[in-house]
Design a protein around this nucleic acid. Structure first.
Lengths: 332, 332
DNA sequence: TCCTATGATGTAAACGTTAACACAGATGAT
DNA sequence: ATCATCTGTGTTAACGTTTACATCATAGGA
């Protein structure tokens, strides 16, 4: 194994000088430096990160924490977040993927991460968020608005997005609205629901319990819910499925019962998943800019890790309604 | 920071004894052990992995390497692989996600991983695979069949899968076949293509160049290719899209041109993505058991990391044709 | 009683790196 | 010419663990 000492011996200098050459310190002459670098190169020297970590007390690893990995988190969400992170994170860091749910105990994160990004889906994660901040590990929380005021937080305004959906439906003349819910204890789900219902109420439309159908963000649950909806005596003309996956399930239910979208019923989804444009009809949905969130998140985290102060600590990324062909205008 | 020394002082024993208590060595009395463990617990002691790594020369990290992360790898593929790995990997290991493409140099993996799993998509990865084996890092290669004979390899028989697709089409009486290709330098793509074409040839069906359409595994490329196909004077009755994403694109093209699946044209995909069942009509496709591969892979890797020998070194996971409703039987 | 074997614990070195401090020679100001 | 400053390099300790080896007490056999 070639170490700093090997190089030092060959170059006839001390360990420190080698270390300086490798970490391009200013306290070294260019000649010595190139000489050492040359030897290091020839020997294929690669620093032992563990040794370095031990003394610098850095792990050169950043942790990406999801609430859950093996279930509950949609695939597109997971990949898009990982993609964004991988893309924008400096390659000198190792990216480690974790699930809060699977942590044997919070302490197990100690010494492991220079920075942590939490993609949080529910308030269940609050204990973990608090632990991380208590350990003074640089952290940013993505996705949902958190209640702690001192935690860097870039979130997506689900409420506003849902409001846009409701308003869009109202504008197009719909009177009877339906909702397929997401997973109950996910913040995304409750905020989408609140935004939708409260906005409709403003337009004097009451979304009764009979028009709210349970779902769990899976295609199958969307399919089931839509089947129920279509069996109603007077089904809604506008259905908001809390995510695109469920909207896709709803599409299938419609197809099976020979109900035409958007002529017979209008559907809107949420997320703007890659497939939503390719459904027939193309799904009207709202874009959740996960990549943007990831980009800002990793930028903030990098700043925190290099002990820079953040100009702002909370940031909302705006929703964008993607109007396609799954909603029709109602004429009276 | 609470270290072994802190505990040692409080327990009135030496560092070594504490270390022994923590690593449940037999050379310690149960009483001392419980006493030390109690103190450690109260202090919320967590070992410094870097220090441990330095002396044991283990990183407690396994690396999951994709050929590419930010492009070229389909989302479902990426997530399913990560999911499987995360699920089956012992939690004492950190899971780190990497892309071979983005590696500054091969040496940068040194000291970082106790084991490496490569999800390889093309022979471009061979240099990396060779490097890893040359470093004697435990490694398994997943997904494609590799040429090196000494590398643990669990792969999916794309050729066989494509053969099943072709035979299925022939059996249902189709005579005119078409193909939408995947990414050219991906092993999956060339094997699917070979399996399809060579099988058809056995049934005296020649797949001319005019019936092969380029694609890149994206929905859009499937859409484009299908548009071209449907514009032909005498389009094929059976089209194999090299993955489900492209099949979905093809669906859209058909819808736009008012071509009915499967009445006017039959389509089969590949991967059995989660959405394929929810398309209308449900997509006939072939299941690629990524989760199974991951499970075997992680099992092998675990054995290798604990220096156990592998009973077998290469394993093919079988394809399963998922017959749904996108192919019709041709009657003459 | 003495010796040996055994079992529990301690001592100290080692892992590979960084960094505080020391040192010597050169440079520049007076 | 003298002294202070600077610059390049070396010395050494430190990071928190594990582990080979040493030590010491105790038990058991003769």
């Amino acid at each position: 194994m070639v170490t700093i000492k090997t190089i030092a011996k060959l170059a006839n200098v001390s360990n420190t000088t080698v270390s300086r050459a490798l970490n391009n310190s200013p306290r070294i002459t260019p000649e010595t430096k190139t000489k050492i670098l040359k030897i290091a190169n020839e020997l294929g020297y690669e620093p032992n990160l563990n040794a370095r970590s031990l003394v610098t007390n850095k792990s050169y690893t950043v942790g990406l924490f999801f609430s859950n990995i093996t279930s509950g988190t949609s695939r597109s969400f997971l990949t898009e977040a990982i993609n964004a992170f991988y893309k924008y994170l400096s390659h000198s860091y190792t990216l480690s993927i974790n699930a809060i749910n699977d942590l044997p105990n919070f302490e197990s994160i100690n010494h492991r991460f220079d920075g942590i990004c939490i993609i949080s889906q529910s308030t269940d994660d609050d204990a973990f968020i608090n632990y991380v901040t208590s350990q003074r590990i640089p952290v940013v929380v993505l996705n949902r608005r958190v209640s702690m005021t001192n935690v860097p937080n870039v979130y997506f305004d689900e409420y506003l997005a849902a409001r846009q959906i409701a308003e869009y439906g109202v504008k197009l003349g719909h009177k009877r609205f339906g909702l397929i819910q997401g997973i109950c204890n996910f913040a995304s789900s409750v905020n989408r629901q609140r935004g939708y219902i409260e906005t409709l109420k403003r337009y004097d439309i009451n979304l009764g319990k009979s028009l709210i159908f349970p779902g769990d963000y899976t295609m199958q649950s969307g399919y089931r819910a839509m089947k129920q909806i279509l069996l109603m005596q007077e089904p809604p003309t506008f259905v908001f499925a809390s995510n695109d996956d469920m909207a896709m399930g709803a599409y299938k239910a419609c197809a099976e019962l020979n109900v035409h979208i958007p002529d017979d019923i209008s559907i809107v989804g949420f997320d703007d998943s890659d497939f939503s444009e390719y459904l027939t009809p193309a799904l009207t949905t709202v874009q959740k800019p996960i990549t943007d969130m990831g980009k800002i998140g990793i930028q903030w985290l990098s700043q925190l890790m290099s002990k820079e102060a953040l100009p702002e600590i909370v940031c909302a990324v705006p929703p964008e309604l993607m109007i396609r062909n799954s909603v029709k205008k109602i004429n009276y």
